[in-house]
Design a protein around this nucleic acid. Sequence first.
DNA 1: AAAATATGTAACCGTATAGTTACGAATAAA
DNA 2: TTTATTCGTAACTATACGGTTACATATTTT
Lengths: 118, 118
Amino acid sequence: MRNRSVTYSSEATFQALSDPTRRAVLDLLCRGAQPAGKIAASFPVSRPAISRHLRQLRKARLVVEHRSGRHRLYQLNPAPLKAVDSWLQHYRRFWEINLTNLKNFVESEYARESDLKK
Amino acid sequence: MRNRSVTYSSEATFQALSDPTRRAVLDLLCRGAQPAGKIAASFPVSRPAISRHLRQLRKARLVVEHRSGRHRLYQLNPAPLKAVDSWLQHYRRFWEINLTNLKNFVESEYARESDLKK
DNA sequence: AAAATATGTAACCGTATAGTTACGAATAAA
DNA sequence: TTTATTCGTAACTATACGGTTACATATTTT
């Protein structure tokens, strides 16, 4: 078998993750592969809506589809999340050092909700 | 000074991160705080467009604004990224184990570009 | 006080997105 | 071979989003 290497666009990944329903689908698939209908039944939106979310997750390769008869099992593919992880890696060094510096500011009166809503 | 604890909505964070320009702004601010105008000058879009991106980043608390005269310095606040990190943490255990399982499938003929574009 | 500078906001436009209902295609069951 | 079942797609609607230009506001400089 060809061992083709696959690259994942973090652009597509971030875009797919921007929707809370899609993130919830991924969270659900952590517990194991599920057919499309069962996934849809877990959410308050219609089945076609979930079907389209699954299509976007497929495009981002965050899930893979296994067809079996009239069922289509969706399985989590965590690989593209590595792109997000490596983007995040860039920021980890700031967490501890900047948290100390910004702690006073961010938690101060200057960071009130009222200032952020505008 | 009051030591108020601040919680970050991963919803707002993911939403803010969904745009490539906003992610690029954060990347830029890794090199240090910058005034709005200088940030805008780094991008091919108009200054008002960047101004609105900055507003969204402010809402998500991914940046903090320090006013100084007629300048407004924007500084990275990496704290909300911890919410993304902890969401990601949930998936890290799947990386190694599932990569082995899915490697053959994802890299096989079944994962052609043509199947994903539809 | 007037002019220049730095920046946010308003109004508008085009496109993307998420949702719905109706329908079509494929497979399994009767 | 009908009939169910499972699932995706088409068409449509409403809203969100990113971009632009024009304008308002605040502060510094002259």
